[in-house]
Amino acid sequence: MSDSVLRMHWQKKAKQRSTSDYIFNLVVFSFSVVILLAVVYPIYFIIIASFSDPYAVSGGDVWLCPVGFTLDGYKELLNHSSIWRGYWNTILYTVVGTFIGLAVNIPAAYALSRKDLFGRNAIMLAFIFTMFFNGGLIPTFLTIRDFNLYNTFWVMVLPFSVSVYNIIVARTFFSNSISSALWDAARIDGCGNLRYFFKIVLPLSKAVISVIGLWIAVGQWNSYFNALIYLKDAKRYPLQIILRDILIINNVQGALGTGEAARIALRLANLMRYSIIIVSTLPIMIFYPFVQKYFNHGVMIGAVKG
């Protein structure tokens, strides 16, 4: 083949490639726009519906912006003391639970990341074993009862605070990011394990602490199962149990009765379902962007192959 023929061949091929790439980009772009809309619209709809006249919502008039703007749904929330008690309980469970969760899991993860820890593999195996095996609902329930934790504040924050998954993630971070030479140097300077962990390791581990802290906090905030099984008193109920009554069982105070008063109550109850979704989910959505930047940094890769 002569030079010019070869050049023509390449030009032709580059042209084909650019057309195919153009179509490819177009397909990818349209896909991503469709996905984005499919995710955003339901969330957006709940937001605008919470500010709209409930008749307009049920009548199908609300599509792109609020119709008959009103704050009645939010005002109605103020009348339900159970919601605010649940909210307060959830805040307590989340703050205390996250603190305990970090205090339990992060030190364990660090200890297990140290290769010179005698019995490391055996201990790790005993931890991982609990990921695949557990006593099941009833034996666990009986254990909680034996420890007198049933229907207490502590059952929500203490017994299930060990998360082997989180330990594996943090351990991977410690083994990859904290050089063992650092420990050797500190030890020669007479630094003990505990001081080294608190003064040197922890300050270097903000990324992993933030991510795991967020996971624990979100888990606590959204937790519903433990409250369903282990709590009896309504005054200890977290927000999610109250939400279940309102959103799923439709058990709204004041929605009973007949006539005009009942009609108004029903209208408010419907509206309140939108506003309570917003109010209960907002705290997570506010915190989430601060931690999101760490997600792609591969903090969780190690967790796949434990």
Partner: peptide, 11 residues
Amino acid sequence: NWGLYLLLLPS
């Protein structure tokens, strides 16, 4: 390494 075992103890 007793310190490390102390860190492991709660979990």
